[in-house]
Design a protein around this nucleic acid. Structure first.
Lengths: 351, 351
DNA sequence: ATGCGTCGTGGGAACGTTACCGCGCGTCCC
DNA sequence: GGGACGCGCGGTAACGTTCCCACGACGCAT
């Protein structure tokens, strides 16, 4: 009469063993009310004695909640996004949810495929860093979702979580000014990326607030990679400039590339060139000199994104947009020009 | 008579629209045989016209295959594991599977919790880098799985994928010897980790093959972190040693830490101390000097792991253990002592 | 012409769970 | 004292898919 040996125990097995109906067993297992303490205990004991484990597939099927969340980021291999993923994963685990992770490689087609996969997997919702130029897939997504990162601005209605670029730039510019670099050169990302404009605007605003004409700032564009930063820095160095050069890179990878270009040009950082980055990736710590940078709260971002996504799933419109503050990390890549040391610094005798 | 508007179309909707039964629709959608081309086309057209997307939950429920794979690694934030995850994710996507990613933090309790989550999610199988000292959870896992990384040796029966430590060490030692460092000091991981013994054994074997007594090698242990490497290097430097020091670190993080310790001691790499690492993490490229290292094929490892896992799931015992070769990356952290340049090198005039 | 096998299709059951309804019982209130 | 109501529980119908079996039609060999 016994069922086939190698089958995972179901709620029916639990119910039989506890001598109740499966409805009652379900109620006990769900921690629901309307049940005697005694019955609940019996069911729980029976469950653990047969080694029962709830089948999430069946639950998802019936209740419409699969207990899975999707995360679509450009590249899990990128340390910043890895931090985000980790934060999201930990927060999801707190609520008993699992995370489906996908890398889009900034490729709209891949992104679309991933979104389809998420829909078919019946995830409860998704956290997405959308590729810049195509929001159609997102419109059709049909599931609760929340945007993460800087592309969020285009979607007025959906919630988003991102880092506070304005505050971050403020942090960096204040430090730069205090060290005697009131008008740094800028190494920015590709013009197509939304984040570029955000960053540039913040710098401009800061300049204007200090009565510095933003137009005097040198600007170079490049890919958000080490190589992109290296090339941009090379171009910056080719410009006929006298004295100390200061560079504010929009991304740590680019900052590291810039550092390499400086070295390759026979110059030294921070003696000849000051560099500050933006992101806070671990590599910056291990570079020489250590990269001074503004760290985005990657893990927090991921965690808050999951929280916001739950609000979205439960139709609690608690918050719409969250911008998390960034944190300054001072290491050795910035020269302090405010103290008048006898170095080969051009004019600019400040302080 | 129309169903409620905001419902995802099911296979029944497709069947009705195509004028066939749901069985036939299912056959058409599954690409099965025993169906007329005409019928198949009608069904496919109906499906795309109503925007049908297969419900993976229901499929998983009925067929027992959820289309999901689990990945349990120590930390997605670790660049090596991120590469593994990426390789696994891409390979899984090729077969239409999704990846559930979990970080265990080398914590047996977390690992156990993750394995439980995977079981409840009814994943088809899992790729696991188990924590060192506890295999009980794995025994009870009950689902197909495959081991990844160096802890695999303890499980004789299960398939595993890892990097070829012996070949990697061979690569490193050969290079070291060719550059005049026949007996490098070793910075190894904690004694508790399985990988440590593997690494040490490979070095010993290489030494014996060259008639070098392994006992003369200085050895320091430490955590697999930058800080661990820094401390180990400091201790190494405290030993009364003359001339050039050469260090073979079992992990890039430690190698980078060692590099920092060298700098902090007022010494220079590679002039005073030669360092070679093992892993191939990106940070090594950005350190100064660039870290010479042996790179593990992280992405391949992940991809092959998924392939192996599929074999396991389908009960195809194709292969049991795979060791993927590593690749040498020469950068600037190794001095070449084989060419007799007038440096402050002690004796040891080889080559 | 009859039997048999195959092909295309339809009808149902099953996967494991939760949602819903109903039923008996005790309690409280008018 | 009788009706209303809440509580604890059981039975059953879904959820969307695949699997299995049955059935008619047809081709082929007997």
């Amino acid at each position: 009469m016994s069922k086939s040996r190698n089958r995972r125990p179901t709620i029916i097995d639990v119910a039989e063993r506890a001598g109740v109906s499966k409805s009652t067993a379900a109620r006990a297992l769900a921690g629901s009310s309307n049940i005697t303490d005694d019955t609940r205990d019996r069911v729980l004991k029976a469950a653990s004695s047969v080694g029962y484990e709830r089948n999430s597939l069946a639950v998802g099927m019936r209740s419409g909640r699969s207990g899975m969340l999707g995360l679509v980021i450009p590249d899990i291999t990128n340390p910043f996004w890895a931090e985000v993923a980790r934060g999201a994963q930990d927060k999801a685990a707190e609520s008993g949810s699992s995370l489906l992770v996908f890398s889009s490689d900034w490729d709209a087609a891949k992104e679309a495929a991933h979104l389809r996969a998420l829909r078919q997997a019946r995830v409860d919702g998704a956290i997405i860093n959308p590729v810049a130029d195509n929001f159609d897939d997102l419109d059709r997504f049909g599931l609760p979702f929340l945007l993460i990162g800087s592309s969020a601005e285009r979607f007025a209605e959906t919630s988003s979580v991102g880092s506070d670029i304005a505050q971050a730039v403020q942090l960096g510019m204040d430090l730069l000014v205090s060290k005697g670099h009131p008008a740094p050169s800028l190494i920015l990302g590709p013009k197509s990326r939304l984040a570029r404009a955000r960053f540039l605007r913040a710098v401009h605003e800061h300049c204007i607030a200090r009565d510095v004409d933003p137009a005097i700032l040198d600007v170079e564009d490049g890919e958000y990679t080490v190589e992109g930063g290296r090339i941009a820095m090379r171009r910056l160095l080719e410009r006929d400039r006298v004295g100390h050069v200061c560079v504010f890179a929009a991304n740590d990878m680019m900052a590291i590339g810039a550092m390499m270009a400086v070295r390759e040009a026979g110059l030294r950082c921070p003696d000849d060139v000051s560099i500050i980055g933006f992101d806070g990736i671990p590599s910056g710590e291990f570079a020489w000199p250590g990269l001074t940078t503004i760290a985005k709260p990657g893990r927090d971002l991921g965690a808050r994104a999951v929280e916001g996504l739950f609000d979205e799933i439960e139709h609690r419109p608690e918050h719409r947009r969250i911008y998390l503050p960034c944190r300054l990390i001072e290491r050795g890549s910035l020269a302090d020009l405010s103290v008048p040391t006898p170095k080969r610094v051009s004019g600019a005798g400040r302080g």
